[in-house]
């Protein structure tokens, strides 16, 4: 299915959909088709890192993946998630309290997902308390806090403080992301890393899981 991988990686949206339909009709296992998409998105992410691709390509690739998942869903056996393969880690994600921006967060969600993480996305304007409750329930390896505004520094800090209170801070990595975060914000929040783009965030996450293994 190299042709499908190429079509997605080269942003040939119509070709990608046509090929997806063709392979489904041919009875190719849905999981294999999804894997082709994952490979393609891996290439897209790499090209973003290399400065060949930019936000439009990340967004379009995500949309292609979404459209393909819709096509594939009816072909899946009951109970089959398509995610299928073994997860490499758990990632709890949300935009912090007071902030309603979601474009960056959604990109992180998509990329973490295709990179093998089980993602729990709490949405936007998420209070610190909710992060902690979900932490207890989900037991993530990494908590990702998104925020575009300077007011989000305090909300991010509140999540970290809450994780400390429940004795969980040393068990989990915290990464913050958004247009206004930098080393000063990271220090203030007491996060483990800060990023201004989704692809770099995934890189950190993969490194952390590797060193954990």
């Amino acid at each position: 299915m190299q042709d499908l991988v190429n079509a997605v990686a080269e942003m040939m949206e119509d070709d990608a959909l046509a090929l997806t339909r063709k392979y489904l009709d041919q009875g190719i296992p849905p999981v294999d088709i999804l894997n082709a998409y994952k490979d393609a998105l891996g290439i897209v992410g790499k090209r973003f890192e290399e400065g060949i691709y930019f936000v439009p390509e990340l967004i379009l690739a995500g949309e292609m993946m979404k459209a393909a998942s819709e096509l594939i869903k009816p072909h899946m056996a009951a109970g089959e998630t398509g995610a299928g393969s073994k997860k490499i880690g758990k990632f709890l994600l949300g935009t912090v309290e007071g902030d309603i921006h979601d474009i960056g967060k959604d990109m992180v969600h998509m990329l973490m997902d295709i990179n093998g993480f089980e993602v729990r996305d709490l949405g936007v304007d998420v209070p610190a308390k909710r992060f902690c409750e979900e932490y207890k329930d989900f037991q993530p390896d990494i908590v990702g806090l998104s925020g575009l505004l300077t007011l989000s520094y305090d909300s991010m800090k509140a999540v970290v403080d809450c994780l400390k209170e429940i004795g969980a801070r040393h068990k989990v990595k915290v990464i913050i992301g958004g247009g206004q975060v930098d080393e000063h914000a990271c220090k203030y929040v007491e996060a483990d890393a800060w990023v201004t783009d989704a692809v770099t965030g995934v890189k950190y996450a993969l490194q952390w899981m590797e060193s954990k293994a």
């Binding site: 300077t150 520094y153 206004q180 975060v181 930098d182 080393e183 000063h184 914000a185 203030y188």
Partner: peptide, 13 residues
């Protein structure tokens, strides 16, 4: 002057 410095930094920063 970075917003992070103005928001969570010190006057010295």
């Amino acid at each position: 002057v970075p917003m992070s410095l103005l928001t969570v930094g010190t006057p010295e920063d």
